[in-house]
């Protein structure tokens, strides 16, 4: 999961206290509209990173209110961050809840796969409206990175919608094919080596 790595990155940029980390994270991802993270999650993640020896408390800041613990990266934290930068990030599109729902709607007694597709499409369009509206509000001359982030979301949604069209066009063919079944497995204990 990327939140711990993001906190390491933000602390590598400069030492900060928990609340600053929360605000910096939110600013970096383009606001809570894009990625809502609660301060409590920041604090628990920080505690976990500290326990693992990746961050360390550097000092305490006090400006009239409660004490603010400033954190910085340890050598191990830097190593972890570099390892993160050196790895690709994947989204596994094969692990798809909608696909599972569609397949099950084909097999359960009163399942209605066309309705499942219809509802999915309407939902995707609603998301598409919302993100398009958000994108139009962003100024590309000042916030190009956010424009590109939102473009990515729009591209994915539009690709999902187009894929849905393809599924719908071939739904009759899919329903005529046999339902995927588990492979036959012999009953009982597996034979020991040399047996059978």
């Amino acid at each position: 999961m990327s939140v711990p790595n993001a906190l390491l990155g933000l602390l590598a940029h400069r030492p900060r206290h928990g609340y600053e980390l929360h605000d910096a994270f939110e600013a970096m991802v383009g606001g809570e509209e894009n990625w809502d993270i609660k301060p409590a999650q920041i604090y628990t993640t920080l505690a976990r990173l500290e326990k693992k020896g990746l961050v360390v408390e550097e000092g305490v800041e006090q400006d009239g209110g409660p004490e603010k613990h400033i954190y910085t990266l340890t050598d191990a934290g830097w190593a972890e961050l570099r390892a993160w930068f050196s790895q690709p990030v994947f989204s596994d599109h094969r692990r798809d809840e909608f696909f599972l729902k569609l397949m099950l709607s084909l097999v359960v007694e009163d399942g209605d796969p066309r309705r499942v597709i219809y509802v999915q499409r309407a939902g995707l369009y609603q998301q598409l409206h919302a993100i398009t509206a958000q994108r139009i509000r962003v100024d590309p001359k000042l916030e190009l990175a956010y424009v590109l982030l939102l473009d990515q979301a729009v591209m994915h949604l539009e690709a999902d919608l187009r894929w849905l069209e393809m599924v719908e066009a071939r739904l009759d063919e899919i329903s005529r094919q046999p339902i995927p079944q588990p492979a036959d497995r012999p009953r009982g204990r597996p034979p020991k080596n040399g047996e059978g």
Binding site: M155, L161, R162, E165
Partner: peptide
């Protein structure tokens, strides 16, 4: 919809 409506999106996909 497939036969009577054509759809054009923001991205070309």
């Amino acid at each position: 919809r497939r036969r009577r409506v054509g759809l054009v999106f923001q991205f070309f996909n």
